[in-house]
Design a protein around this nucleic acid. Structure first.
Length: 430
RNA sequence: UCCUCGGUAGCUCAAUUGGCAGAGCGGGUGGCUGUUAACCACUAGGUUGCAGGUUCGAGUCCUGCCCGGGGAGCCA
């Protein structure tokens, strides 16, 4: 008999098939037994009927516990009463294992308990839906850049120096030297951009910040494109195209998952290019008009980001930040050297920053001066300044945080559910 | 790191002024001809986070510690 997956079950109505999976739930009523089976691709209701109380399949059914693993064979039928519209009339039931009492029940649990059982929590429908959206987002990102002839250039995770001196790094030993876990692939992207024109890297990054909020992970995934000869405005366009591409793809292919998450799609569907674009000055003015205590020169905190994204009904691009509050490599504005040619994309519905990027300094003298001003070790940045010695080129890029993007798409209260095994400030188990 | 809230049955929670530690879910047993987090009956299940203190008596009050939730700063 053919082994099939539940997501393909509609192709087999009227046929006998085999399904391999786990018990999701069960119900019984006299001469009928209902078995909800999940196989990783979906859930289907299996039915067993008999007039005979001692029917052998009933005895097997009665011994099943939640998450017991099994193989069932039976007839696929359409039935309006079945969740999903299809059900399996079970003819054979082969138990692989009767599971021990499963800790996660169909009722409520606390966050702490669920995080402690993350390895099992992944099996629940909502977690399944979130991670399906994540997988689709990753696929969309790769398709977007590959279709536009960006070259994937994997950057190292073990690095000898800080990309941005301000952030805390995870230190590890590298034989008789020290090494740090990468917090961004950007500096290396600038080197590969000079070799390949337009590049991107996509991988995990690590920040040893003691952040304990709904939008921070210690280990998170970031996609970072870098384009030789691109200006700030060029990569703002690129960022908008990327976000539109991801949005359309997820709305097209993962609508069922968004429904499981009870995520309203209308606010996502009305997003269109071009996104509103404001300078830092304009943003501060907008915030102050609405009663924010923000002073000029302050960086936006979470409340400001939330407020800004609520003012517009769209993702917002904020540009031209005071250079003081931004990274050392940011290109200053021609007319206002105190402003950096950087951009932050704030997602709609109060989700805050999902993209940060900008134009990089390409002038050797200016870059060396900045490295000094930021008290960075010049020697460690020798290779980086070399890029300005041998055919320097204006260039721009950005980083998009995968988990924040998925949290926004799914409208989740906390980023921890957007990655299978989140690394958080006080949690590295499981 | 700081602010704030919490820790009671496997899970989610309740316990009035300091006065017999309880319910729902889950488990077990039985019942029910189509269930949708099914339902009904019965049943087992406790070092009240840890250590001290006050008191005739502490889940409840006090001190210290441990663990966790929410938030801030920083950032994607």
């Amino acid at each position: 008999m053919k082994w099939v997956y539940i997501e393909d079950i509609y192709q087999y109505a009227g046929q006998e098939v085999e399904i391999r999976g786990w018990v999701y739930n069960k119900r019984s009523s006299g001469k009928v037994r209902f078995l909800l089976i999940r196989d990783g691709t979906g859930i289907i209701q299996g039915t067993i009927f008999s007039e005979n109380k001692d029917f052998p399949l009933f005895q097997l059914f009665d011994g099943l516990t939640q998450e017991s693993s099994l193989i069932v064979r039976g007839l696929v039928r359409t039935d309006k009463r079945a969740p999903g519209g299809y059900e399996l009339e079970i003819k054979e039931l082969e138990v692989i294992q009767i599971a021990e009492d499963y800790p996660i029940t169909p009722k409520e649990h606390s966050v702490a308990f669920l995080m402690e059982h993350r390895h099992l929590w992944l099996r629940s429908q909502k977690q399944h839906a979130v991670l399906q959206v994540r997988a689709e987002t990753v696929r969309a990102i790769r398709d977007f850049f590959n279709d536009r002839s960006f070259r994937l250039m994997d950057t190292p995770i073990l690095t000898p120096n800080a990309c941005e001196g301000t952030t805390t790094l995870f230190e590890t030993s590298y034989f008789d030297q020290k090494a740090y876990l990468s917090q961004s692939g950007q500096l290396y992207n600038e080197a590969t951009a000079a070799a390949f024109g337009k590049v991107y890297c996509f991988g995990p990054t690590f920040r040893a910040e003691k952040s304990k909020t709904r939008r921070h992970l210690i280990e998170f995934w970031m996609v970072e494109p870098e384009v030789a000869f691109a200006t700030l405005q060029d990569i703002i366009e690129l960022g908008q195209d990327l976000i539109m591409f991801i949005l359309e793809r997820v709305l097209e292919r993962r609508r069922a998952d968004l429904e499981i998450l009870e995520r309203e799609t209308a606010p996502l569907e009305r997003i269109s290019k071009p996104f509103p674009q404001v300078t830092y000055d304009q943003a501060v003015k907008l915030l102050q008009e609405r009663g924010s205590p923000l002073a000029y020169g302050d960086d936006f905190g979470a409340p400001e980001e939330t407020k800004l994204s609520e003012i517009f009904d769209q993702p917002v691009c904020v540009t031209h930040f005071p250079a003081k509050i931004k990274a050392f490599y940011m290109q200053p504005d021609k007319d206002r050297p105190d402003l950096a040619l950087g951009v932050d994309f704030l997602a709609s519905e109060g989700f805050g920053e999902i993209i940060g990027g900008g134009q990089r300094i390409h002038d050797l003298n200016l870059l060396e001066q900045r490295i000094k001003e930021f008290n960075l070790p010049a020697e460690a940045f020798k290779w980086y300044t070399d890029l300005r010695r041998y055919g320097t080129f204006p260039h721009s890029g950005f980083g998009l945080g995968l988990e924040r993007t998925v949290a926004w798409l799914c409208k989740l209260a906390h980023i921890r559910e957007t990655i299978p095994f989140p690394r958080l400030l006080y949690r590295i188990y499981p």
